[in-house]
């Protein structure tokens, strides 16, 4: 595993936190509503082959909330500025849930510096008639039980008392998620009109037992981005890199090597 270093970047009125490590082509990991913590391990592993950046979105984790940003459309422009500021090129965007939505919003605006995108259990669109789960209404325990399929992970998380710092991040992440995604709940009605603009290799990864965005959402994304590849993982919930880490890693790695060749 490669080590990740911590960096800070001042952008607009906010200081944002990025952990970065490894070398090679640039891989930008965009975390979901729960924050960046559960991506640290994956980031280290990917850093063996890539220059991996894992930022905390403004308002999440160690990053300040910028007053300027109040929607995921804002976050897309923010990340385009972020990419420019850091001089990143040929980026592989990998977005998880809320982060997938951000990745899609970035890509419909500009793929100038984007080499590929992977959407993992992605938010951003709404499929009529397919009820979504509502993490804002679930208790902390219900949330854990609904996020994962693997019972060992569920038991492991529920048996641990969160530290004071973890609680603080949980609360902060929840408020930031609400700010960006409360209504319409986890989607932008305009996004689906423009997904055809994505002109780089695209991978859609989904768990067959996702209780937040059911697997029908993967097909809906595929319909809107016809050139995309789709990988549906078995016995897998909303967080594939936790529920099925090996199958997930394999799918992502083979996609990234294909786009590199």
């Amino acid at each position: 595993m490669a080590t990740q270093d911590n960096h800070q970047l001042e952008i607009y009125d906010a200081m944002v936190h990025i952990s970065r490590g490894g070398s090679g082509q640039t891989l930008l990991l965009l975390h979901g509503a729960g924050g960046s913590a559960n991506l640290k391990e994956l980031a280290s592993k990917l850093a063996e082959d890539f220059d991996v950046l894992l930022p905390d979105h403004p308002g999440f984790g160690l990053s300040d909330q910028s007053k300027r940003l109040s929607s995921v459309s804002d976050l897309a422009f923010y990340y385009l500025d972020f990419i420019q500021e850091l001089g990143l090129k040929d980026i592989h965007l990998v977005g998880f849930s809320l982060g997938g939505w951000i990745a899609a919003e970035i890509a419909i605006r500009s793929t100038t510096n984007v080499k590929s995108i992977a959407l993992v259990s992605s938010a951003g669109i709404h499929v009529k008639g397919v009820p979504k789960g509502d993490p804002f209404l679930w208790s902390p325990e219900e949330l854990v039980r609904n996020l994962y399929v693997n019972q060992d992970i569920i038991n492991d998380i529920l048996s641990q008392e969160p530290t004071s710092e973890e609680l603080e991040f949980m609360v902060k992440n929840r408020v930031a998620a609400a700010r960006y995604a409360w209504h319409p709940r986890f989607y932008n009605p305009d996004l689906e009109k423009w997904l055809h603009r994505i002109d780089v290799p695209t991978l859609i990864i989904w768990g067959d037992q996702d209780k937040i965005f059911p697997v029908e959402y993967a097909s809906a994304f595929k319909n809107l981005i016809p050139h995309a590849q789709t990988q549906i993982l078995k016995d897998c919930g909303h967080v594939p890199h936790m529920d099925q880490p090996e199958a997930f890693y394999h799918s992502l790695k083979s996609f990234l090597s294909e786009t590199n060749s």
Partner: peptide, 22 residues
């Protein structure tokens, strides 16, 4: 009602949300 109904994120300050979570 449940806490999630009574206190949606952002309705109160971060400080009081953390206290309730604790």
């Amino acid at each position: 009602m449940t806490n999630e109904m009574l206190l949606p994120p952002g309705y109160t300050t971060l400080k009081s949300m953390k206290k309730i979570a604790e």
